[in-house]
Amino acid sequence: MKRTLIPLILSALLAPLPASAMDVIKGEILQGWVRPDGNRVAAIRMTMAPGWKTYWRAPGDMGIPPHFDWAGSKNLSAVAVEWPTPTVFREENLTTIGYKDQVVLPLVITLPTKGAPVHLKTTIDMGVCLDVCVPAQLHLDGVIDTDATRAEPAIAASLAQRPYTAKEARVAKATCAIRFVDGDLELETTITLPNTGGPELVVIETGHPDLWVSEADTTRHGNTLTSKVDVAHSTGGPIALNRAHIRMTVLGSKHAVDIQGCTPG
């Protein structure tokens, strides 16, 4: 798909929310626990109206990636969202990636003052979908002050659903080849790993928010998984790729694998 079509397609998919965003998706903060290092694990639980879904961090060719704004939070120096393995939704001429009905997003929160509560304040801009995809926004505000050290079951279950690491999945090698084809930048990744269950989808992220990446054309031969994507700048600017920042997630029917970085191929 050519990048000039992206704004037109997104415009066609966006429509007014049915009544209000709160009728479609609700959010709440889960307290979690204190880690041995004094930092905290908490979570955001999103519950959608029946049949509705929201997007993963890499939502597919036409999805709306979620954006978290933590401004106004107190006793918080960093937040890492730990994404559970998403579902691949395949429809005619459209593939999106996300979560249906409900998702728990674990948060690993780094505190400048250990032992003190965290005032967590966030605005989440996202997309939600049923027959059409629409923009939504959540505002969450709460104090995390538990002194529990035992894992909270709902958050622990979500953490257990994260993709395997490259080491856990026995990835032997991951290479990236960057080339221009008919004036467009093409990125080809080659990953050596056991089969994750077909059909497999490789999601490629560049680490640069202004770069658009097409859906991967993926093929497997034995233990070699090859994927090709087109990469374009959202505003037509120059493209710079750092192989160390390229992230490849293999989504198979049996399990998923998260691979950070690649070598020249």
Rank of each mutant, 00 (worst) to 15 (best):
L76V: 11
T196R: 12
A157C: 06
D184T: 12
V103T: 14
F89W: 07
K254L: 07
W33G: 05
E82Y: 01
P117E: 09
L211H: 08
A12E: 14
T218Q: 04
A15M: 12
W70K: 00
L111Q: 15
S77R: 15
A177Q: 14
V81M: 04
G198F: 11
A240T: 12
K2D: 15
M46W: 09
L211W: 08
G222V: 11
H208M: 11
G183N: 10
T47L: 07
W56A: 00
I144P: 00
L94K: 08
A116F: 03
D61C: 13
K100C: 08
L30E: 02
S214L: 02
A42C: 07
R40P: 01
S20D: 09
L185V: 15
K228H: 14
S20R: 09
I191G: 07
V81L: 15
G198T: 15
G198R: 10
Y55F: 12
R247E: 06
E92C: 03
I124E: 14
V79M: 04
D147H: 07
P65A: 14
E28D: 11
C262D: 10
A136V: 11
A169Q: 04
T190V: 10
T110K: 08
A49K: 15
A169E: 08
A232D: 14
I191A: 03
L225Q: 00
L159N: 01
N75R: 01
C129V: 02
A156M: 06
V104T: 15
V203D: 04
A177E: 13
E91G: 14
L13M: 13
A154Y: 05
G142M: 00
L17T: 12
N242M: 07
Q31W: 00
D145C: 00
K74D: 15
P112A: 06
G142H: 01
L193T: 10
R3A: 14
V134W: 05
W56N: 05
E152F: 04
A177N: 10
R57Q: 13
E92K: 10
K74F: 10
L140M: 11
M46C: 14
P264W: 02
H255F: 13
L10D: 09
V108Q: 05
E200C: 05
N242Y: 11
Q260R: 15
M62Y: 09
E92M: 09
E82V: 05
Q31M: 04
L8E: 12
E92N: 09
H139N: 15
F89E: 02
G261F: 04
L211G: 01
G197H: 05
